[in-house]
Amino acid sequence: MAAGAASGGSAASDTYAKVRHWLLMPSWLVLGFFVFAPVCVMVIYSFLTKEFRGGVIWDPTLAAYDQFFFDRGLFGDGDPTLQWTYISIFWRSTWQAGLATFLSLLIGFPTAYYIATRPANTRALWVFLVTIPYWVNLLIRTVSMKFLLRDEGPLNNFLMNVGLINDPVHIINTNLAVQLGLFYSYLPFMVLPIYASVERYNFTMSEAAADLYATKWTTLRRIVLPAVKPGVIAGCILVFVPSLGAFLAPDLLGGAKNFMIGSLIEEQFKGNAGNWPFGAAASMVLLSMVMILLLIFSRQQRRAGAAA
């Protein structure tokens, strides 16, 4: 998505060049005032002192970042040692998001490939089938997952009825449930960009490889995969980034013990116990991770574009 908007196309038609600034004005005002400015204010907040009833005191400090990374003992005067509490939450989130991305790729790539190689008349129907879940409310999809995975839910009932298990498997409120939730939430995000790449792939290249005695799997690995790499990377970004900051799956499926970044941040803004500067600092760490990732991604895409 990001790459799609960033390119803007190369056609330099200039019919409305004279009024272009007027046409851009509303988007500049709304996005500048309600997206760009808020992100800037959040940066400032992450360097302020927390007030005990939630909120801030305008007194610049590095306390929020210090709390994130370092442990200075009970009274705050000990030697700083690395504080693992929050780093490990970030690490767990990265790991969960990475695994969800990998699983989505494992299922999503063959699906996208299969759909893209269908005859033109049925292809649209397949894409349509994958698109529907993409448009269904994420909260409802997560709630459905919760319903399905419960101890006395349909999944356990089914497994017990076929005789695979005797007692219900406890899945809800575990890391596994969060993982299934993330995978389920963002799987369509993987399929659609890969599908778009495979659809543009020129299959005469596969034929050429076959003529040169490459096996089908070698062709897939050495010819098809490199050609559709931009779509694969786009799909991975579209799954990884929202998984990393996910709130609904860890909150509804993971319970209190399986905290992820999203829950940690949300906690800081709930009620009076919150710590706004700390929440802003944690958001900044997350934002930085995502921005670095997107930077690498856009460089990759540009290189791929230059090579093509």
Partner: peptide, 16 residues
């Protein structure tokens, strides 16, 4: 600027 809301993670945008 236009693509900013889809590049920033939703939770970060919510906080901001």
């Amino acid at each position: 600027l236009i693509s900013l809301p889809i590049m920033v993670p939703e939770i970060v945008l919510a906080v901001a």
